[in-house]
Design a protein around this nucleic acid. Structure first.
Lengths: 259, 259
DNA sequence: CGTACGTTTGACGTCCTTCAAGTTGGGTGG
DNA sequence: CCACCCAACTTGAAGGACGTCAAACGTACG
């Protein structure tokens, strides 16, 4: 049993400039989980209710969990972008994946003893936490729910493979284009795109860490992509100017997203 | 229900030059799954029995499954090495991960509709197949079993992240050293190393595809590693000459293997 | 004994990095 | 509202890691 009563909300961190109602954030999770395995309303209610109980926020650029920690809860991103990253002893950093609203941070929390990577907030992030008992209860009570969570983990793994492919084989312009295609497609799946553009809060240095390039080279490559009329990136927003040519350049085959 | 009676063995492919008794191959699976969650003997028996039913083999360099296929069974590697790989439209190939005896090829088989990557046999491979009903039955009948399978998927995901890290941030000598450290450690965990050496059936071209390098550069890098007295690779066998310095060069932190 | 595959070598090119110095622009405080 | 500041972005020049191409060499196996 969880100590907090339904409806109790815990907020840490500083910012409170989020006016989007809670229901909307939570429905993104449902959309993420339920797109394929049609849930009974009842089952959806259970997770929706659970997600309202403990909500936290972290400021941009703060860590949520560090490599080596033993997490006590599973986290659902409600708002903002989270990066999964690793560091080498000499400081080289690699962003391994990006999590957006609706994504689950670590369903592994209770099986593997300690984190083999860190989680960092790209933007200010709001997330919901679920404890072990509650999580187990939800999973045990609904086969659909368990399948949906399992499926979501498998999609995450598929995306990770595509990232390995990207850094291993694609050139700089291809990698960056591919990152744009992927994030645009994922956000589009959540209804978070607006007329060919979407939020894109990564700095050029972040893009470098995600693609295995230096920020200098990211800068020059972005200029080239813009000169070609493919995309424009300004004010933390991505404007896709030519979807088809961008996809072609990236060799983006969206089936790996299993949308 | 599965049509075959226990003990029935189906063999495809050509080679039969494998003298290792079946029990030994299967115990590697148990070791892989059970290392952490102590099984009841009874539970172990269930999976062991199931794994004996349908055994197949494929010749080296043949595909087991291709991207786009809809797999009907889950596959457990009994003997040999399997590669998971993807190709770009223009032919560039990336090996995404390597599977060795005891590894599960695709627990996702029944949840995601179609393969987003291919599986290829590096060596001659023997594997056991389990159908959907049987798999579901085993999982449903034993919580420990379900947890062990889940855990194994999570470890696979962790390894995939480390590979993204490698191709994204490590230099050629670091990447190759890291690959050697990882495979050696995983084989050691199964008792498949012999006095500082282990099987290593990848060609230099394969190593290139796994690390995102060309075979030419792999060749020159291997020569350098050998000159430094770190490793030697001949006759499909890896000889680790200086474990400590190899690990240091690779920045190998084995915790991600969760052994 | 030839053939095929894997490995090795050399010369040369290029993509990306490094270093180091600006420039821009959004946010903050006076 | 302006001045300032810092982080993010931009630019140039030079170097290095790795790729490409092409040929030769070794060695297992039929």
């Amino acid at each position: 049993m969880v100590a907090l009563k339904p409806g109790t909300s815990v907020a840490t961190g500083v910012r409170g400039a989020h006016n989007r109602p809670m229901e909307m954030s939570r429905s993104l999770i449902a959309r993420n989980l339920g797109a394929h395995s049609r849930f009974e309303t009842e089952e959806l209610m259970a997770i929706e209710a659970a997600l309202g109980r403990v909500v936290r926020s972290v400021e941009a650029r703060r860590d949520i969990l560090r490599e080596g920690d033993a997490p006590q809860t599973i986290k659902f991103v409600l708002e903002g972008w989270v990066s999964r990253y690793k560091e080498l002893p000499d400081g080289r950093r690699q962003i391994l994946s990006l999590m957006i609203p609706g994504d689950i941070c670590d369903a592994n929390a209770f099986i593997l003893e300690e984190m083999d990577h860190s989680l960092g907030a790209i933007t200010t992030v709001r997330y919901a936490e679920i404890g072990r008992e509650e999580f187990d209860a939800i999973v045990a009570s609904s086969l659909n729910m368990a399948k949906a969570l399992w499926r979501s983990e498998l999609v995450t793994a598929s995306i990770q493979r595509e990232w390995t492919m990207s850094v291993g084989q694609r050139t700089a312009p291809e990698r960056i284009s591919h990152l744009f295609c992927e994030m645009y497609a994922r956000l589009a799946g959540l209804g978070l795109t607006q007329g060919g553009s979407c939020e894109f809060p990564l700095t050029q240095a972040d893009i470098g860490e995600a693609t295995g390039l230096t920020s200098v080279h990211v800068n020059r490559t972005l200029q080239a992509l813009r000169r070609e009329g493919l995309v424009e990136l300004r004010a933390r927003r991505l404007h896709v100017l030519d979807h088809d040519r961008l996809r072609e350049k990236a060799m983006f085959a969206p089936s790996y997203l299993h949308l």
